[in-house]
């Protein structure tokens, strides 16, 4: 209620009122280690904002500061335009949280757990509605430890929604889930966005970032190394296509010949990747090469560049270790 009034008081179009979260020069260190080393960003309302990065990048630390679980060591924090030292009880009323590990009180039924969390907030959505949203309608009386991994994750998201929060924090929401469960969660997230919620996501899955995000910040070793929409980031790579074929006993001189023709060649045990701009021209050159070198082009395919390529380009490392 208070937030709405505040919003109306601001001038229309003023940036502040549209920013759900903003951090400036946020810092957090553990002893000598600088987990978060002066990062700045803002999350616009009704947006899916993703922090993408490998494990140990500082994503979880960042999100935990925003969830009020850790105190920042430096920098400024703004919650819906209001500057705060930390996320306190008042702010917690407005947020929903999905932590990395599942952490339900044992020996409790699903509905009991939902009712329990409902009691923590002033405004809540009825448990039955939550169960509908996360598609666990027939699990109301099941014990939480009897749910499958995907079901538990959906329940955890349900708990995060119980107070109809303005902003949802989802820390690695699909890690460890099978592809089907992952797709279910993605659908759920997209539904929530279309309902007007703001979503702050951390992940190390490139497809997740690409699929869901309005805006991506790439993080590595406590710092932001790139920012933009997924398309913007990929476009910056300035390569349109990637030609891939299987590496079957490629000889050394064939490879060097390939490197002479194409500017960017990645060879590993399994496949060869050529990063090119003009597809037809490149394909012609490739066929040429293959005929001359007498190399077959097995499993030939063409793919678009993705955020993993972006990350690799920026850091020389892979997103997945």
């Amino acid at each position: 209620m208070e937030q709405k009034i505040k919003k109306n008081n601001n001038e229309a179009g003023e940036n502040n009122s549209q920013k759900a979260i903003e951090v400036r020069n946020l810092k957090k260190h553990y002893g000598e280690v600088k987990a978060v080393n002066g990062i700045s960003f803002y999350v616009k309302e009704n947006q899916v904002f993703t922090l993408l990065g490998p494990n140990g990048a500082g994503k979880t630390t960042t999100i935990e500061i925003l969830e009020g679980l850790t105190e920042k060591d430096g920098g400024e924090l703004y919650f819906f335009g209001e500057r705060c030292q930390r996320i306190g009880r008042r702010q917690k009323e407005e947020i929903g949280v999905l932590l990395q590990q599942n952490n339900f009180v044992e020996l409790t039924q699903v509905e009991e757990l939902l009712d329990l969390f409902a009691s923590f907030y002033s405004t809540t959505i009825p448990a039955t509605e939550i169960l509908d949203i996360v598609e666990l309608q027939d699990k109301a009386e099941a014990y939480v430890e009897d749910l499958s991994g995907g079901q538990q994750q959906r329940l955890a998201i349900g708990l995060a929604l119980i107070n109809d929060p303005k902003i949802l924090f989802l820390d690695e929401p699909t890690t460890g889930l099978d592809p089907q469960a992952r797709r279910n969660i993605w659908q759920l997230i997209q539904n929530l966005r279309s309902q007007g919620k703001t979503i702050f996501l951390t992940t190390h899955y490139m497809e997740e970032a690409e699929e869901l995000s309005d805006y991506v910040y790439i993080m590595d070793r406590g710092e932001i190394i790139a920012r933009g929409t997924p398309l913007e980031l990929i476009a910056k790579l300035d390569r349109e296509n990637i030609i891939v074929f299987a590496d079957r006993n490629l000889q050394g001189d064939s490879i060097s010949e390939l490197e002479n023709i194409f500017p960017q060649v990645d060879v590993d045990d399994e496949q060869v990747e050529l990063h090119v701009k003009d597809l037809s021209e490149s394909m012609a050159k490739l066929f040429d090469w293959s005929k001359k070198q007498e190399q077959t082009l097995d499993e030939l395919r063409i793919r678009r560049p993705n955020l993993e390529d972006v990350f690799l380009d920026l850091t020389g490392k892979e997103l997945r270790e």
């Binding site: 009880r89 008042r90 947020i95 932590l99 952490n103 339900f104 009180v105 923590f120 907030y121 107070n163």
Partner: peptide
């Protein structure tokens, strides 16, 4: 992490 989840709420 049960306590952690709870203190993420008010």
């Amino acid at each position: 992490g049960v306590l952690k989840r709870m203190v993420a709420s008010p």
